[in-house]
Design a protein around this nucleic acid. Sequence first.
DNA 1: GAATTTACGTCAGCCTTGTTGACTTTCCAA
DNA 2: TTGGAAAGTCAACAAGGCTGACGTAAATTC
Lengths: 166, 166
Amino acid sequence: MAEGNTGGESLLFLTDEQLRKGIEAMFFAYRGFTDDPDRILEGMDYGRAHHRAIHFIHRSPGTTVSNLLTILGVTKQSLNRVLRTLIEDGLVEARVGKADKRERNLHLTAKGQDLERQLSDAQRARMRAAYRAAGPAAVQGFRTVLEAMMDPEMRRQYQSLREGEK
Amino acid sequence: MAEGNTGGESLLFLTDEQLRKGIEAMFFAYRGFTDDPDRILEGMDYGRAHHRAIHFIHRSPGTTVSNLLTILGVTKQSLNRVLRTLIEDGLVEARVGKADKRERNLHLTAKGQDLERQLSDAQRARMRAAYRAAGPAAVQGFRTVLEAMMDPEMRRQYQSLREGEK
DNA sequence: GAATTTACGTCAGCCTTGTTGACTTTCCAA
DNA sequence: TTGGAAAGTCAACAAGGCTGACGTAAATTC
């Protein structure tokens, strides 16, 4: 199904025009995707970077700083600035590693869980509405294309996160 | 596969776990989506903001500054900073409006077209690879979900852009 | 014809979030 | 014991958002 590139109409979805529409769809949809959490965060001292950190700490409790660096793809200085404020404000706890004491195992506090819940509720609500409107078959295609669009390294991260959770 | 679901079918794609996967897919895919143009731009004096301006001027030649403001969703000061450098460098031309002389009609110069081509070639190449790998049905679903994810206002913009082109 | 509104440009200043580079501390492992 | 990895810190800087204030020309309204 995927590679059947014989003649006629099978390749119509690969025209430059179709691709351009896909590109603009990504652009506009990503705005919607980030909008709700951004709105919640504004007014607090936090931004999108804090949201990302909170999301992935929630997702993989006990993860280390360097794990987070790999997933987020930023420098440790950038991440550290964000992490520091979250720790100072009591949303994140950094526990010295048990096996390797150089590592810090990151966890959300109750307060951190609260904010995470607020943010992900908003983001999931939009996602749910979109999924519901589009239907299960479209959702399947959505995920397939997005996965194919990732860099191989990001795809590995994405998939290992998936299998990491039960 | 991930969640221990029985074969209920109909609403399984709306579980929080499924939604979370979609959220992370958006995050990782958007990185891939912006990566290639970003790499081309770095080293030049331009960034993602310039790319966006160039894209939409190419897309709607003769568009006005305020049109662009609406589409991009930034302040005029932000856009102006970007536009000014593009005009100074001879990538964009701002012609005084014919009917309304307060307006500036924006066009890419030959030089601007060159960069646009470079950027969109890179972005389309990744998009094409993803589309090809996923197949036409998945692409259809991809676009449907993204469209449903947009804010109504953005969706209008997106659709009016679509109909603008033949 | 005067007043107001619109479209655009610009100056100044601030914030978030990214970057490099240099340096320290801790501590595991060879 | 020593090299290097993990983590943190300080400093400086850039891109690209933002607000507020102001200016000007053109169009519109009264």
